[in-house]
Nucleic acid binder design. Structure first.
Lengths: 304, 304
DNA sequence: CCACCAAATGACAATGTTGTCATTACGGTC
DNA sequence: GACCGTAATGACAACATTGTCATTTGGTGG
């Protein structure tokens, strides 16, 4: 493989001048620049990133830890933005900033030891910063890399590590306000497990928004802890919907914890003989494109 | 940041011995090894990948070009294995082989110039090989990297570059045989655009399998060129299905070009008053998990 | 035509590691 | 206790680049 020396010899200049051309430094005469460029093309010279890094200690690499790749086959939790979208945004930002993105996949299980290993690899490659993205909104405990900027996405530690978080509460509030504006005064809530951060935030926001609007607890029956991914859970969902339908003052709208629940719920409601949205309105959450794409009718939902 | 010199000094050995310990070379006395390990831990020493690469010219990096990340928001062509699955498999193989996978995203548009740039970046990082994955089964023309092993996935060039390809024909054949075994003697085929490699292979395989079984052309009406992603295309699909239903000898099964078409087709067939599978059987292709996951009833399909 | 200044170019060190080869330490044998 | 062979360790060069500083070049004004 050709080096600066080969290029320099062919172009009849010093290696330093080759370096200047490669790095687009000013103060190289255009004629010299051309000669060097031609030599580079002819020899198919490629700067050696290792040597470069060693001398300049700027790797131009950003490290990212996510489960986007390995989780492809897993059943998603269906709450929030999926990891691959986060990777996509980071990727794009890196491209714009001229940085190379080095993605380390965390693997299926979340193992702190593993993360430490990944961080060590990043450190060896002298990445300029690390981004850690969690698969869903939650609290985590990470071994902090010394001297390396770290940003969390979709998660937070108790410390002051900067993080980018979805506004689960804000979305829910907007959704409720939307329903209120449409005239609904009795709204049921069939939500996620409230031990999940997203579930708690959304549930709290739902209750607060309803209370703020003066709706009583009776007018806003609330059920949580369903995820609609298992057979059992679907049975629970069915029971809940029957209970809701049997209420003396039946709600005119139901907020589901996510789009999957909303879809399953709609199927069940129709089976019970209710028309949507004539008899009852339905809202989801997350705007899960994999799902929404295949729905027969539009669904009111929230994009984070 | 600590270097081998710092570690060597603290452990009271030469830098070479530190190197040996770091690289798990034999012939280091256990007591020495421990002393060095302790020094490494204490100083939080991380080998400098750049210096390492420069000396040993083994980067341990495999480069991959795919559209898996950037295509997340795009409408997939719904034919074959989606890119992210390919990345996942490559990722896993790299992990097992102890290699680092460097993923370069090709971006939405397929631009040969862009690929050349990505290849140059890979070359600068002295990757040990390059994997190029196409979003769907097709022929491509790539600028060949000199001296770098290249493997194509989901695509082929006219040259002798090694490639890994889906067996579109084999899958279709198995599917037809399955239907034959179930007793079907009149099978319709509503397939993909046959200008697409996958479409052509599947269509050819369908016709061959039917001919081999002695089914006449009349018994195997064939329609191609639908993708079920656009409004227009859905109208076409509807017309085709009506035509099929109106046949004097109605087929007892329909093979659709992919799962999306199968799903839309089933909706339409039910609307026309046909029961599935009592009145007519339906088969898809690709086992598109994003879609199949949400179907109400099981679908006969093919996993590549 | 010379002196001068800025622009252009070059010489050389430094970066952190591993490969090569030399040297030292250790354990056993006579 | 001297000798020997192997295991363990060390000294030093080499890798390909960029930073620092020195030198040369070319143009301009007197």
């Amino acid at each position: 493989m050709a080096t600066v020396f080969d290029v320099a010899k062919l172009a009849g200049v010093s290696i330093k001048t080759v370096s200047r051309v490669v790095n687009d430094e000013p103060s190289v005469r255009p004629s010299t620049r051309d000669r060097v460029r031609q030599a580079i093309d002819k020899l198919e010279y490629r700067p050696h990133s290792g040597a470069r890094l060693m001398r300049s200690s700027k790797s131009g690499i950003v490290g990212m830890i996510s489960d986007a790749v390995s989780s492809v086959l897993e059943d998603p939790l269906n709450a929030g933005l999926s990891s691959i979208h986060i990777v996509r945004g980071v990727q794009e930002a890196c491209r714009e900033a001229g940085k190379i993105l080095m993605i380390a996949d965390q693997g299926p299980e979340e193992d702190d030891v593993d993360v430490a290993t990944l961080l060590r690899t990043f450190e060896s490659h002298r990445v300029e910063g690390v981004i850690y993205a969690a698969p869903y909104h939650r609290q985590i405990a990470l071994p902090l890399p010394r001297g390396l900027p770290l940003v969390l996405v979709n998660c937070f530690d108790g410390l002051s590590t900067p993080s980018v978080l979805p506004d689960d509460a804000g979305g829910q509030q907007i959704l409720v306000e939307h329903l209120l504006k449409a005239g609904h005064r009795r709204i049921a809530y069939v939500g996620l497990d409230e031990n999940m951060v997203a579930g708690r935030l959304r549930g709290d926001a739902f209750r607060k928004a309803c209370a703020d609007a003066g709706l009583s607890g009776n007018a806003t029956p609330t059920y949580v802890g369903i995820d609609a991914t298992s057979e059992d859970s679907l049975n629970d969902l069915h029971d809940i919907l029957q209970e809701i339908c049997a209420l003396s003052e039946r709600p005119t709208a139901i907020c589901f914890g996510n789009d999957l629940m909303a879809m399953r719920g709609m199927e069940m409601l129709e089976q019970m003989g209710l028309r949507i949205p004539e008899d009852i309105s339905v809202a989801g959450y997350d705007n899960d494109e994999n799902l929404v794409k295949y729905l027969k009718r539009p669904l009111t939902t929230v994009t984070l």
